[in-house]
């Protein structure tokens, strides 16, 4: 390994799962070598950009790439959706950050992924499978159009429970209904791992609390540096205050104060919305982003007015707002 073989964060592959969800594969051989399930990166799109934390969805040690799955919800993630094409580079990507998820010796594990949480739960499901566990995946999406990686999960899980809110794919229901199915089908589950919006992780922790099944969650608070220096990502875990970036991001779901987490996530909602509106406005004014421009970037507009789409917030699976 050469010390100087640093990456220039080139994007080598991109895939659009839906109007709002996209995958970027970034070349960074050193990081691909070091990354472990549960870790995250902090990304900057350009020099003026903000630092946004993104969980590592996958890593390929042979190809030397890191995979990120991103949901376009705010100014930065939407700008990335427009600008990040194969061959371009990110301004910065640092990591892998955080303590890797402990892949325990549990014999039967349920991996719960909601919305964007489906991507980062994948390396954990694969990790548990490699450790010899019986792995049940419970994945939740709003509808059929948003479903991704079903095949990847099928390949590494013993059971897959897919839920959509409208029943357009898999079973109809919320992700908690999927968890109930898993609990009803197996009385010997050793561990739950849940990644997704805080509401979902809270529901999952509540569902397993009575049965006292170990439940690990991956929290996604607001961060700046990701190295323990700013304290913006502090979360209440039991009686203690922890920094998600260096003490986590995985914590015991039965101890995490989710209400506190959700309240702290709303810290910059107002300014973020303003920044987003200002950006959308400037896109309309200067770039005249029309369907043709988006088509040129390989982004399907599905026949809808692109401006309306840019402004629409995908509820309920919101991404973690960046620092």
């Amino acid at each position: 390994m050469k010390a100087t073989a640093m990456s220039n964060f080139e994007i080598v592959a991109r895939e659009d799962f839906s109007d709002v969800t996209y995958l970027l594969e970034v070349r960074h051989p050193l990081m691909a070598k070091a990354a472990k399930p549960g870790q995250f990166v902090v990304v900057m799109l350009n020099e003026q950009g903000e630092r946004i934390p993104l969980t590592i969805a996958d890593f390929d040690r042979k190809k030397g790439t890191i995979t990120l799955v991103i949901q376009a919800v705010g100014k930065t993630t939407k700008q990335m959706q427009l600008e990040c094409r194969v061959g371009t580079s990110l301004y910065a990507m640092v990591g892998p950050m955080g303590v890797p998820s402990p892949i325990s010796h549990a014999k039967k594990v349920v991996c719960v992924g909601g919305g964007l949480g489906v991507a980062p739960i994948f390396p954990q499901a694969r990790g548990f499978k490699e450790a010899g566990a019986y792995v049940i995946a419970v994945l939740g999406f709003r509808n059929k159009d948003l479903v991704f990686w079903e095949d990847k999960f099928k390949a590494c899980c013993d059971e897959l429970i897919l839920c959509t809110n409208d029943g357009s794919a898999g079973m109809k229901g919320m992700i908690t209904d999927g968890i109930k199915v898993a609990l009803a089908g197996h009385s010997d589950i050793d561990e739950f791992v849940a990644i997704g919006p805080p509401v979902m992780m809270k529901a999952c922790a509540d569902a397993t609390r009575a049965a006292k099944i170990k439940t690990m969650v991956s929290v996604n608070p607001i961060m700046v540096d990701g190295t323990g220096m700013c304290g913006g990502c502090r979360v209440k875990v039991g009686k203690e205050v922890k920094f998600a970036c260096v003490d986590g991001p995985d914590f015991d779901g039965h101890l995490v104060d989710f209400d506190d987490l959700m309240m702290r996530l709303s810290r910059y909602t107002k300014v973020e919305k303003e920044a987003h509106e200002r950006w959308s406005e400037s896109c309309r004014m200067t770039k005249q982003v029309g369907p043709s421009a988006l088509d040129a970037l390989g982004i399907s507009t599905r026949g809808r007015a692109p401006q309306a789409e840019l402004l629409e917030l995908p509820d309920p699976f919101e991404d973690a707002p960046g620092g």
Binding site: C230, Y268, R278
Partner: peptide, 19 residues
């Protein structure tokens, strides 16, 4: 950090917020 390194003081020219 927000103000100095991330230039939140130049928001919205820089993206990092700081109300």
């Amino acid at each position: 950090t927000r103000c100095n390194l991330m230039r939140a003081r130049d928001f919205p020219n820089f993206d990092t917020p700081l109300p």
